[in-house]
Design a protein around this nucleic acid. Structure first.
Lengths: 225, 225
DNA sequence: GACAGACTGTAAGCATTCTGTAAGTTTAAT
DNA sequence: ATTAAACTTACAGAATGCTTACAGTCTGTC
């Protein structure tokens, strides 16, 4: 996991960098906006940490240039509180998250990881049940290695089952999880939804099945057991 | 792909060299600064790996000479952490990347490849999906071996899809990636853009398709997947 | 400058896909 | 056998995406 760290304060840069390295990141540090832009254009980074208080160029200009060069790389901004303008707060500046100085390194690391986990990010969590794989990052599903086309409702339901694999879900619990408080459907809607999901799983050759426990609820059983 | 490897420690040189050879590089090894400068002047190298801890001449002087002789050859520096001075970190020394000793050979190889991939470098990064080839160096596209004329917006979109091939892209993510901070278009603009890109891909006989996941986003599927 | 041509976003209507409802059928437990 | 629960199917309204036409912008050329 390779990061670009843009920070003009050397002391701070060194300390933070050491922590990042310890946490398994590969880090390139640059101290000026110009170097930052150059580096962003030249290498592939999984995320970029940008301190806005740079000596040579305006921070937001650097941000813009970086986003132009690497639209997909998430950027975490660091800035002093009084420089925190509204565009930044709204995250309308093109950055993906921001951090107010002074901050704790653990906080920075948490933010980076969060950003990397976001849809399209480099870090991902994969739920598994038999030969069904659910990628939480982009919410894509693969069954027996082939990507499966699944509708939104089915996806929600599948995610629920996979997150609670091997545990019983009452229909009420499902209703609660899938539907807001405002739009309570008939319980039959859930029966229909599971029916559709089951059919899809079956058609695509999934080895894990959703079992019915009459009067109690449903359960997704892991392949083996 | 021919490399010049400057390293005075013979043991290390031999080991690293073996790995480089195994990875398909052609490698010339020299052990002194003088030999390095001589070699750099005499032959064409795609990249140069330079250990700064040389016995005869100061490493940065060697670097300077090499850059004078071959300004276009990318140089990757290896150095001990405590010798890592700031010029180096800022990549202002004329080197293109640096590596802190001790390093893993795989890391070195990754850096070399990255450096070679840079604009003007010997290696182009080519994204591939089915019979679609996207050359990141000049952002040109070939489909089924024939170069395709693609407009800027289509190019941006295609690059995004290819960089995240097989991953779902929500329209919001696409909007974020393609449009600046200032000009937020209707989401329909993205629908239209994908429509145009799809049509072009279809007309040109691309084997990879952009699939719609209703309510979720789009995904570029790899040909065979 | 002026013009032609390509490019891109907007808007509107059409087409498709989803999804909950309802009604009838099947299943399982007592 | 009876009954409650769950399954299945068809259907219609809703949501979403596709497509087309159009207009404004930009580009390069004469």
């Amino acid at each position: 996991m390779r990061l670009l760290y843009v920070e003009d304060n050397e002391k701070l840069a060194q300390n933070t960098c050491a922590s990042l390295l310890k946490n398994g990141f590969t880090v390139d540090v640059v101290h000026t906006g110009e170097d930052a832009i150059h580096a962003a254009k030249s290498f592939e980074y999984d995320a970029i940490i940008l301190d806005l208080g740079l000596p040579d160029v305006d921070g937001l200009t650097v941000l813009k240039e970086i986003k132009l060069a690497k639209p997909e790389a998430p950027v975490v901004i660091c800035t002093a509180r009084d420089a925190l303008d509204d565009r930044l707060k709204g995250l309308n500046s093109g950055s993906d998250d921001y951090l107010v100085k002074p901050f704790d390194v653990s906080e920075l690391i948490a933010r980076i990881k969060a950003v990397l986990r976001r849809p399209g990010g480099a870090l991902g969590l994969v739920l598994e049940a038999g030969n069904i794989h659910f990628h939480t990052v982009d919410r894509s599903v693969k069954i027996a290695g082939k990507s499966a086309k699944v509708s939104k409702r089915e996806l929600d339901l599948l995610e629920l089952f996979m997150r609670r694999k091997g545990r019983i879900q009452s229909k009420e619990a499902i209703e609660n999880a899938l539907y807001g408080f405002d739009a309570p459907p008939t319980l039959n809607a859930i029966e229909v939804a599971t029916h559709r999901l089951r059919k899809k799983l079956l058609d695509l050759g999934a080895t894990s099945k959703i079992q019915t426990l009459r009067g109690i609820g449903y359960i997704l059983e892991d392949d083996g057991q």
